[in-house]
Design a protein around this nucleic acid. Structure first.
Length: 923
RNA sequence: GGGCGAGUAGCUCAGCUGGUUAGAGCGCCUGCCUUACAAGCAGGAUGUCGGGGGUUCGAAUCCCUCCUUGCCCACCA
């Protein structure tokens, strides 16, 4: 029997069961490559977590938001397709396995490329599923039938295809350029993978003597070790101090190597040198600094590489050969000082570039890399957002996006790693030609050599993930899925990958999909080439003190641990209710406790309901549970509170619908919370108890059925069932459990997730009922407050005397039972005159007196009334000021004036009554 | 150096396309085990909306300025 629910809600007892059920039953799977069935699809791509990842609160927030939307759209009857997958995460995964190897006393080079890759796959099959297992525990309603891994064969083929096409289109080039070099990973990384850290370092002024012995020039540098690679010194052509010296030759200190004399380098003029900075003279090291590289190009200078891949000096014959860069710096400074060439050392704040993954200080390095010529892609990506084909929420992120996109640099896509998509380029060892092809060519196209070697570099992980919105649907093949599901509707993600991923998807999506015709064969336009139509950027989840969560601070909240304590639904609700766009979430357990209480409230409301159902059955009432259909008009005899709660349900569904359309998860969550707790539980359940009278059926007697009771019970069940459906996108576990319990294991659908989401049109609005209940609530609240101040004991009933307008009196008269139940009113009597005095209080349409012998606390009442009068006076003054203002009356809209007038007269009334009450107080 | 935000009750945050007397949750105070729920019920207190100036009939909301604070981007030796 359903009423045998435990008294308190225990999420741990039910959640795993439903999580398993949803996956096992493939409830959220959609058929692959089927022609459209005419339904509107709702398509989202889950931002693929790294295969090495563990679930954190950011994931949980992301998945909660996406799941609310996926479930909502699904319940609206749309084909909700939410594609999950994991990213191979080149650097992260390779690091993970290399760490293992190190512990075993070996390394990847010893193992060799093939064996190493085998190890990585082995690692992946063993540990790679951790994060998806955690996702399943969250109840994310993703389509597991479409789960992918970015290194899957089909996706890898698509990556190759994309690379080859870009190369054919002249958008990929290879060349020797200065890149951000990570000396620990020994790979190039893109600009985005570099973090700049403000650090107080030193700036050194070094004296470079002229070769002719005619003097010297002092240069400034923060990296003195790079002087070994200097090929020139430049000064600004307008710099009066140095104008005359330009053209002189410098004898570069410390550059003498075994058997070789010191190198001589020229002093040149270049705009780059800013007279006001440092000494105004800049040393030029083209192979180890991006600016110097440019200078070098302008003056056709040599590019002298002096460091190896591990940032050790690589200058055979030099005394510094083999030294680590910092050791070399130390030695060089010592040697310069010994020669009297170290002029000055000053503190200097600079932004040190470090590698995001390894933390290594980036060493700019000249090396052969692959790049994407980004401008043509960026142009389309900018247009897509400018023209409104992609909408950002919150909109301010569009500004950030434009800012970055308009200052974009070519993207270095090659990585000197082993784990990843290997670049489909082939080098001829004989003639040195490189060709790009989908498959390995038999022979070199230039010299016919037979043994071409594939490029050893792999692609930046973000290259493949940037293609996902179309590759997951089968691109480059023209599939039904692609026709139906591209563009996806929405991307939900964090701002941290706005450039890494979002921007790249937009660039690659608009680029490649523009070439794919529309399902009807027509040419695709930019608006349909975009990878998604909406981007919702969510906040960062911080700890309760607004601190960023980090391992070093030890304030990381583990979602799995927290859901074990509070239940997944409570944690989801916490995140949703805080998810106000543009604001970070300070995750506090206190709040989660509050929502656990909410879950418990729902649970207990269900217990109450089930108890009533059992009582009704015992009394011979027939119960039908199928309430998921529109309610339509209510029968004549339907009591007012049931009319009211249906009208409220109508209003709250409007609110939720509006909020979710705007991605206002907080507003949606607050609306359902307020409705369920503040209205359904606090008022409706209490009121409906008055109708639920089930007399005991004696042996042999025919049960007597009260139609009002029957309709109330049906209303109660109907509203509760609708509430469960309304709540289910937010709290899928609890609602699934209770919904199945309500139908006693024989529900009309396999899951509440497959039912219809409550719609405004399902529930009749009823202004009369709403205003009646509102007035009764006001009356009850007034009586409750008065009783409290009079000191009437909680349990004791007291009679009231009421005076007021006809409508209010009629309501009070007709609903004495409500007053009795909710305000402990023992009897209602009517007065013909205004009621004042210490035991009376006024509402807008009434005065009410509670008859009770104990006198009120006069000083307390005086204080209360004084405060109230002050507040009313303030409001009154404000209103009067406005209403006496000609300009206001002339310019303000009519409805505002009307509203103010009405409010003014009501306030005046309350003010006068309060004033009278105060004056009536005994001295 | 450039860009984008934030400052509202003790705490975390709504409200900000200007319009009635600024809200919620948590916390706090008081009284209640009222047979769905003490993870509960009822009642209560709490804010010159960061400071200053301006626009307007009307400003938490728009503009200027200052203060405090966060984030992103950046090749200044």
């Amino acid at each position: 029997m359903p009423n045998e629910l435990p008294k308190a809600y225990d999420p741990a007892a039910i959640e795993q069961k439903w999580a398993d059920f949803w996956v096992a039953e493939k409830l959220f799977d959609t058929p692959l490559n089927q022609p459209s069935d005419g339904r509107k699809p709702f398509v989202m791509l889950l931002p693929p977590p790294n295969v090495t990842g563990r679930l954190h609160m950011g994931h949980m927030l992301n998945q909660t938001e996406m799941d609310i939307l996926a479930r909502w759209h699904r319940m609206l009857g749309e084909e909700s397709v939410w594609v999950p997958g994991t990213d191979h995460a080149g650097i992260a995964t390779q690091m993970m396995v290399e760490k293992q190897l190190k512990a075993e006393g070996t390394n990847r080079k010893e193992l060799g490329r093939d064996a190493f890759l085998e190890r990585v796959w082995q690692w992946k099959s063993q540990y790679g599923g951790a994060i998806t297992t955690q996702m399943k525990r969250l109840g994310a309603s993703v389509d597991w039938g479409r789960e992918y891994f970015t290194m899957d064969e089909n996706l890898s083929n698509a990556v190759t295809e994309a690379f080859v096409r870009l190369h054919e289109q002249g958008l990929i080039y290879r060349g020797s350029y200065i890149v951000n070099w990570d000396p620990i990973q020994q790979t190039a990384v893109s600009d985005l993978e570099v973090e700049h850290k403000e650090t107080v370092g030193k700036i050194y002024h070094l004296r470079y003597p002229f070769a002719d012995g005619s003097g010297s020039i002092v240069i400034a540098t923060t990296r003195p070790e790079t002087m070994l690679g200097d090929v020139a010194v430049v000064v600004n052509p307008e710099d009066e101090r140095y104008k005359a010296l330009v053209g002189k030759t410098i004898k570069l200190p410390l550059s003498a190597a075994a058997g070789k004399p010191a190198r001589e380098i020229p002093l040149l003029a270049d705009e780059w040198a800013k007279p006001e900075f440092g000494t105004g003279a800049v040393k030029v090291t083209p192979a180890h600094d991006p600016n110097d590289y440019e200078i070098g190009k302008r003056h056709s200078l040599a590019e002298l590489t002096i460091m190896d891949e591990t940032a050790h000096i690589d200058l055979p014959g030099s005394p510094y050969h083999g030294l680590d860069r910092y050791e070399a710096r130390k030695r060089i400074l010592e040697d310069l000082e010994a020669q009297g060439l170290l002029v000055e050392v000053k503190d200097h704040t600079l932004a040190i570039a470090t590698s995001q993954r390894s933390g290594a200080v980036i060493e700019p390095r000249l090396s052969m890399q692959w790049f994407i010529k980004i401008q043509p892609l960026a142009d389309k990506a900018i247009a897509a957002v400018e023209e409104g084909h992609i909408k950002f929420t919150p909109p301010m992120y569009a500004k950030t996006y434009f800012e970055w996109m308009r200052n974009i640099h070519d993207w270095c896509i090659s990585r000197q790693l082993w784990w990843g998509h290997r670049i489909p380029a082939y080098h001829c060892p004989q003639c040195g030609t490189t060709c790009v092809a989908k498959t390995r060519p038999e022979r070199c196209g230039s010299c016919d050599h037979a043994e071409l070697q594939q490029e050893t570099d792999v692609l930046d992980t973000w290259f493949s993930s940037g293609l996902l919105p179309f590759t997951v649907f089968g691109w480059p093949e023209p599939t039904e899925d692609s026709a139906k599901f591209y563009p996806t509707d929405l991307l939900v993600t964090g701002f941290d990958i706005l450039f890494f991923w979002v921007a790249r998807m937009i660039m690659l999506g608009t680029h490649f999909m523009l070439d794919v015709p529309m399902p009807d064969g027509s040419k695709r336009e930019l608006k349909d080439a975009v990878p998604f139509r909406d981007v919702y950027i969510h906040a960062l989840v911080r700890d309760a003190d607004r601190q960023k969560m980090s391992k070093t601070k030890g304030n990381v909240i583990d979602p799995i641990e927290i859901i074990e304590r509070f239940g997944t639904d409570a944690v989801r609700f916490t995140l949703a209710s805080q998810a106000s766009p543009g604001t970070d979430i300070a995750f506090s357990e206190a709040r989660t406790e509050g929502y656990r209480a909410f879950a418990n409230k729902i649970w207990n409301a269900a217990r109450f309901l089930f108890l009533q159902i059992d009582r009704a059955r015992t009394a011979g009432y027939k119960m039908t549970m199928g309430a998921a259909n529109p309610v339509g008009a209510l029968p004549e005899i339907t009591p007012i509170e049931t009319r009211w709660i249906f009208a409220r349900l109508n209003a709250v569904t409007v609110e939720v619908d509006k909020a979710l359309k705007e991605y206002r998860f907080d507003e949606a969550a607050n609306a359902v919370y307020q409705f369920f707790w503040g209205e359904f539980c606090d008022w409706y359940l209490e009121l409906v108890k008055l109708r639920l009278d089930f007399p005991e059926v004696k042996e042999g007697e025919q049960p007597i059925q009260n139609p009002e009771t029957a309709i109330s019970l049906a209303g109660l069940v109907g509203v509760f069932e609708a509430s469960l459906r309304l709540l289910s996108p937010f709290m899928p576990f609890l609602t699934e459990e209770l919904w199945h319990a309500l139908y006693e294991g024989k529900p009309y659908a396999k899951s509440i997730a497959l039912t219809r989401f409550p719609q405004p049109s399902d529930f009749p609005a009823d202004d009369t009922a709403v205003s009646a209940i509102t007035t009764l609530q006001e009356l009850i609240n007034t009586i409750r407050g008065l009783r409290k101040d009079l000191g009437v004991p909680e349990k004791e009933a007291a009679p009231i005397l009421i005076h007021g307008d006809h409508r209010t009196l009629a309501l009070a008269d007709a609903h004495r039972d409500m007053l009795a139940k909710l305000a402990r009113v023992s009897d209602v009597d009517f007065a013909t005159e205004t009621l004042t005095g210490t035991d009376a209080r006024s509402g807008v349409g009434f005065d009410v007196r509670v008859i009770y012998e104990r006198q009120i606390d006069v000083p307390a009442e005086r204080e209360r009334l004084t405060k109230e009068i002050a507040k009313l006076t303030k409001g009154l003054e404000a209103a009067n000021r406005q209403l006496c203002n000609e300009a206001f009356l002339a310019k303000a809209p009519a409805n505002v004036i009307e509203g103010l007038k009405k409010q003014q007269s009501e306030t005046q009334l309350l003010h006068d009554k309060a004033k009278a009450a105060l004056e009536a107080l005994p001295a």
